[in-house]
Amino acid sequence: MSDVLLFDLSQHLEKLFSQQRYDAGFALGRHILRYYPRHLATYKQMGMAALAKSMWEDSIDLLQRALSIDPEDIQMWEALRSAAMATELQAEAALAADYIKDLHATSEETTPVAAGHDAARQQDWVRAYEAYRAGYAQHPQRMDAALGLVTALFHLEAYDAALLMTNHILEELPYCLKAHWQSIRCAHLLQDQTVDVQRHLRIARGIDPDGRYLLRWFDDVQEEKLAHPRALIPAWDESERWAYHAATP
Protein backbone atom coordinates (compact mmCIF):
# COMPACT_ATOMS: atom_id res chain seq x y z
CA MET A 1 0.00 0.00 0.00
CA SER A 2 1.38 3.42 -0.95
CA ASP A 3 2.19 6.14 1.56
CA VAL A 4 0.27 9.39 1.84
CA LEU A 5 0.72 12.53 3.91
CA LEU A 6 -0.38 12.18 7.51
CA PHE A 7 -1.63 15.76 7.28
CA ASP A 8 -4.05 14.79 4.50
CA LEU A 9 -5.43 11.84 6.46
CA SER A 10 -5.85 14.05 9.51
CA GLN A 11 -7.81 16.53 7.40
CA HIS A 12 -9.93 13.67 6.06
CA LEU A 13 -10.61 12.51 9.61
CA GLU A 14 -11.87 15.97 10.50
CA LYS A 15 -14.12 15.92 7.42
CA LEU A 16 -15.57 12.51 8.29
CA PHE A 17 -16.48 13.62 11.79
CA SER A 18 -17.93 16.92 10.54
CA GLN A 19 -20.16 14.85 8.24
CA GLN A 20 -21.14 12.69 11.23
CA ARG A 21 -19.66 9.61 9.55
CA TYR A 22 -18.54 8.33 12.89
CA ASP A 23 -17.89 4.67 12.07
CA ALA A 24 -15.57 5.61 9.22
CA GLY A 25 -13.99 8.33 11.34
CA PHE A 26 -13.19 6.03 14.23
CA ALA A 27 -11.79 3.47 11.80
CA LEU A 28 -9.53 6.09 10.23
CA GLY A 29 -8.51 7.35 13.67
CA ARG A 30 -7.48 3.84 14.65
CA HIS A 31 -5.50 3.58 11.43
CA ILE A 32 -3.58 6.77 12.24
CA LEU A 33 -2.94 5.69 15.84
CA ARG A 34 -1.66 2.36 14.60
CA TYR A 35 1.30 4.15 13.01
CA TYR A 36 1.46 7.26 15.23
CA PRO A 37 0.21 5.95 18.59
CA ARG A 38 0.56 9.30 20.36
CA HIS A 39 -0.73 11.58 17.60
CA LEU A 40 -2.28 14.44 19.53
CA ALA A 41 -4.60 15.78 16.84
CA THR A 42 -6.15 12.35 16.34
CA TYR A 43 -6.79 11.81 20.04
CA LYS A 44 -8.46 15.20 20.25
CA GLN A 45 -10.62 14.63 17.16
CA MET A 46 -11.70 11.19 18.33
CA GLY A 47 -12.40 12.42 21.85
CA MET A 48 -14.61 15.22 20.60
CA ALA A 49 -16.41 12.84 18.23
CA ALA A 50 -16.99 10.32 21.01
CA LEU A 51 -18.54 13.13 23.07
CA ALA A 52 -20.84 14.04 20.18
CA LYS A 53 -21.94 10.39 20.02
CA SER A 54 -22.58 10.30 23.78
CA MET A 55 -19.84 7.70 24.15
CA TRP A 56 -19.01 9.17 27.54
CA GLU A 57 -16.43 6.70 28.80
CA ASP A 58 -14.58 6.58 25.48
CA SER A 59 -14.62 10.36 25.30
CA ILE A 60 -13.19 10.69 28.81
CA ASP A 61 -10.46 8.17 28.06
CA LEU A 62 -9.42 9.83 24.79
CA LEU A 63 -9.59 13.37 26.15
CA GLN A 64 -7.59 12.51 29.26
CA ARG A 65 -4.90 11.02 27.04
CA ALA A 66 -4.87 14.15 24.89
CA LEU A 67 -4.82 16.47 27.91
CA SER A 68 -1.84 14.61 29.33
CA ILE A 69 -0.07 15.76 26.15
CA ASP A 70 -1.55 19.27 25.99
CA PRO A 71 -3.01 20.32 29.37
CA GLU A 72 -3.62 23.90 28.20
CA ASP A 73 -6.33 23.07 25.64
CA ILE A 74 -9.49 24.70 26.97
CA GLN A 75 -11.74 23.09 24.34
CA MET A 76 -10.74 19.64 25.53
CA TRP A 77 -11.26 20.59 29.17
CA GLU A 78 -14.76 21.81 28.32
CA ALA A 79 -15.50 18.54 26.52
CA LEU A 80 -14.09 16.51 29.39
CA ARG A 81 -16.25 18.37 31.89
CA SER A 82 -19.35 17.60 29.82
CA ALA A 83 -18.52 13.90 29.63
CA ALA A 84 -17.61 13.74 33.32
CA MET A 85 -20.87 15.42 34.33
CA ALA A 86 -22.83 13.00 32.14
CA THR A 87 -21.26 10.07 34.00
CA GLU A 88 -21.42 11.75 37.42
CA LEU A 89 -17.65 11.78 37.84
CA GLN A 90 -17.68 14.75 40.18
CA ALA A 91 -13.94 14.97 40.86
CA GLU A 92 -13.06 14.96 37.16
CA ALA A 93 -15.77 17.51 36.39
CA ALA A 94 -14.57 19.80 39.20
CA LEU A 95 -10.95 19.61 38.04
CA ALA A 96 -11.98 20.43 34.49
CA ALA A 97 -14.05 23.36 35.75
CA ASP A 98 -11.02 24.77 37.59
CA TYR A 99 -8.89 24.59 34.45
CA ILE A 100 -11.64 26.17 32.34
CA LYS A 101 -12.16 29.05 34.75
CA ASP A 102 -8.46 29.89 34.95
CA LEU A 103 -7.73 29.42 31.24
CA HIS A 104 -10.60 31.82 30.48
CA ALA A 105 -9.11 34.30 32.93
CA THR A 106 -9.31 38.05 32.53
CA SER A 107 -7.59 40.81 34.46
CA GLU A 108 -10.47 40.72 36.95
CA GLU A 109 -9.75 37.14 38.00
CA THR A 110 -8.20 36.65 41.41
CA THR A 111 -6.62 33.18 41.46
CA PRO A 112 -2.84 33.16 40.91
CA VAL A 113 -3.07 30.74 37.98
CA ALA A 114 -5.73 32.88 36.32
CA ALA A 115 -3.60 35.99 36.89
CA GLY A 116 -0.66 34.19 35.30
CA HIS A 117 -2.65 33.32 32.18
CA ASP A 118 -3.88 36.90 31.90
CA ALA A 119 -0.36 38.32 32.28
CA ALA A 120 1.02 35.86 29.73
CA ARG A 121 -1.56 36.93 27.16
CA GLN A 122 -0.36 40.49 27.70
CA GLN A 123 3.27 39.31 27.52
CA ASP A 124 3.94 40.80 30.94
CA TRP A 125 6.45 38.11 31.82
CA VAL A 126 7.53 39.42 35.21
CA ARG A 127 3.93 39.51 36.44
CA ALA A 128 3.24 36.16 34.77
CA TYR A 129 6.24 34.59 36.50
CA GLU A 130 5.19 35.84 39.92
CA ALA A 131 1.59 34.69 39.45
CA TYR A 132 2.48 31.29 38.03
CA ARG A 133 5.03 30.70 40.78
CA ALA A 134 2.40 31.44 43.42
CA GLY A 135 -0.20 29.33 41.63
CA TYR A 136 2.11 26.38 41.20
CA ALA A 137 3.16 26.57 44.86
CA GLN A 138 -0.50 26.34 45.87
CA HIS A 139 -1.47 23.72 43.29
CA PRO A 140 1.56 21.67 42.18
CA GLN A 141 -0.75 19.30 40.31
CA ARG A 142 -1.82 22.10 37.93
CA MET A 143 0.25 21.50 34.84
CA ASP A 144 -1.04 24.63 33.10
CA ALA A 145 0.57 26.65 35.90
CA ALA A 146 3.79 24.65 35.54
CA LEU A 147 3.90 25.17 31.78
CA GLY A 148 3.09 28.84 32.21
CA LEU A 149 5.97 29.14 34.64
CA VAL A 150 8.31 27.55 32.08
CA THR A 151 7.15 30.00 29.42
CA ALA A 152 7.64 33.00 31.71
CA LEU A 153 11.10 31.81 32.76
CA PHE A 154 12.04 31.28 29.13
CA HIS A 155 11.04 34.82 28.17
CA LEU A 156 12.95 36.14 31.18
CA GLU A 157 15.98 34.23 29.85
CA ALA A 158 16.16 32.07 32.98
CA TYR A 159 16.83 29.02 30.83
CA ASP A 160 18.38 26.88 33.58
CA ALA A 161 15.31 27.29 35.77
CA ALA A 162 12.98 26.70 32.82
CA LEU A 163 14.80 23.49 31.93
CA LEU A 164 14.59 22.27 35.51
CA MET A 165 10.86 22.96 35.51
CA THR A 166 10.33 21.00 32.30
CA ASN A 167 11.95 18.02 34.00
CA HIS A 168 9.41 18.24 36.82
CA ILE A 169 6.55 18.42 34.33
CA LEU A 170 7.79 15.41 32.40
CA GLU A 171 7.98 13.39 35.60
CA GLU A 172 4.22 13.91 35.91
CA LEU A 173 3.30 13.96 32.21
CA PRO A 174 5.96 12.04 30.26
CA TYR A 175 4.46 12.98 26.88
CA CYS A 176 3.67 16.64 27.53
CA LEU A 177 4.46 18.10 24.12
CA LYS A 178 5.23 21.68 25.09
CA ALA A 179 7.56 20.52 27.86
CA HIS A 180 9.54 18.43 25.38
CA TRP A 181 9.87 21.35 22.96
CA GLN A 182 10.85 23.73 25.75
CA SER A 183 13.50 21.27 26.92
CA ILE A 184 14.94 21.24 23.42
CA ARG A 185 14.87 25.03 23.14
CA CYS A 186 16.48 25.59 26.54
CA ALA A 187 19.16 22.97 25.92
CA HIS A 188 20.01 24.63 22.61
CA LEU A 189 20.35 28.09 24.15
CA LEU A 190 22.35 26.77 27.10
CA GLN A 191 24.42 24.47 24.88
CA ASP A 192 23.72 21.84 27.52
CA GLN A 193 25.17 18.55 26.31
CA THR A 194 23.64 16.62 29.20
CA VAL A 195 20.11 16.97 27.78
CA ASP A 196 19.07 14.07 25.56
CA VAL A 197 17.78 16.30 22.79
CA GLN A 198 17.31 13.42 20.35
CA ARG A 199 15.01 11.65 22.78
CA HIS A 200 12.91 14.79 23.23
CA LEU A 201 12.77 15.25 19.46
CA ARG A 202 11.76 11.65 18.89
CA ILE A 203 8.88 11.93 21.34
CA ALA A 204 7.77 15.35 20.09
CA ARG A 205 7.78 14.26 16.46
CA GLY A 206 5.77 11.17 17.31
CA ILE A 207 3.11 13.38 18.90
CA ASP A 208 3.15 16.19 16.33
CA PRO A 209 5.11 14.97 13.29
CA ASP A 210 4.57 18.05 11.13
CA GLY A 211 5.21 20.61 13.88
CA ARG A 212 1.75 22.19 13.76
CA TYR A 213 1.72 22.80 17.51
CA LEU A 214 5.31 24.02 17.42
CA LEU A 215 4.29 26.76 14.99
CA ARG A 216 1.23 27.64 17.05
CA TRP A 217 3.08 27.97 20.34
CA PHE A 218 6.42 29.58 19.52
CA ASP A 219 6.71 32.83 17.59
CA ASP A 220 10.42 32.41 16.97
CA VAL A 221 10.09 29.15 15.02
CA GLN A 222 11.05 29.59 11.38
CA GLU A 223 7.78 28.82 9.63
CA GLU A 224 9.36 28.20 6.25
CA LYS A 225 11.06 25.10 7.65
CA LEU A 226 7.68 23.63 8.56
CA ALA A 227 5.54 25.13 5.82
CA HIS A 228 4.95 21.84 4.01
CA PRO A 229 3.81 18.71 5.87
CA ARG A 230 6.19 15.81 5.33
CA ALA A 231 5.16 13.01 7.68
CA LEU A 232 4.01 9.93 5.77
CA ILE A 233 1.66 7.10 6.67
CA PRO A 234 0.34 4.08 4.73
CA ALA A 235 -2.82 4.96 2.83
CA TRP A 236 -6.11 4.05 4.43
CA ASP A 237 -8.57 1.68 2.80
CA GLU A 238 -11.97 3.12 3.64
CA SER A 239 -13.52 -0.31 3.30
CA GLU A 240 -11.82 -1.18 6.59
CA ARG A 241 -14.24 -1.15 9.49
CA TRP A 242 -12.32 -1.91 12.64
CA ALA A 243 -14.15 -2.10 15.91
CA TYR A 244 -13.32 0.98 17.94
CA HIS A 245 -11.13 0.49 20.98
CA ALA A 246 -9.10 3.32 22.52
CA ALA A 247 -5.44 2.91 21.64
CA THR A 248 -2.87 2.91 24.42
CA PRO A 249 -0.30 5.70 24.05
Rank of each mutant, 00 (worst) to 15 (best):
D118W: 05
A134W: 00
V126E: 08
D160H: 14
A162C: 12
L164E: 15
A120E: 13
A114M: 09
R121T: 06
N167I: 05
A115T: 10
T151A: 15
T166R: 10
P112R: 03
G116H: 01
L163P: 05
V150T: 14
Q123K: 13
N167Q: 15
A146R: 02
L149F: 09
A131F: 04
A146S: 11
E157K: 15
Y132P: 02
W125T: 07
D118C: 06
Y136P: 05
M165N: 11
R142M: 12
L149H: 07
L163C: 08
M143W: 01
A137D: 07
L164I: 10
R127Q: 12
L147K: 04
A145E: 03
D124W: 06
G116T: 03
A119G: 08
L164C: 10
V113M: 06
A145N: 07
T151Y: 09
A120R: 13
A131M: 04
Y136E: 12
L149P: 04
A162Q: 11
G116A: 03
Y136M: 08
F154S: 08
P140Y: 03
G135N: 03
A146W: 00
A145C: 09
T110G: 07
W125S: 07
Q138S: 03
W125A: 03
H155S: 06
G135E: 00
D144H: 09
A131V: 05
A137S: 11
A119T: 10
H117S: 04
Y159M: 13
A119V: 12
P140A: 10
E130T: 02
V113H: 04
A152L: 09
L164M: 15
V150S: 08
G135S: 06
L163F: 06
A137G: 05
A146N: 03
A161V: 11
D118Q: 03
Y129A: 06
A134F: 01
A119H: 07
V113Q: 00
H139R: 13
V113W: 01
M143Y: 05
V126L: 04
R121P: 06
T151H: 14
A162L: 12
L156E: 12
A152G: 07
P140W: 00
D118S: 12
L164S: 15
W125Y: 14
H155I: 07
H139Y: 10
L147C: 08
Q138L: 02
M165I: 03
L149W: 09
R127M: 06
D124N: 13
H117M: 08
L163H: 11
L149S: 05
Q123H: 08
L147V: 08
G148Y: 01
R133S: 05
P140D: 09
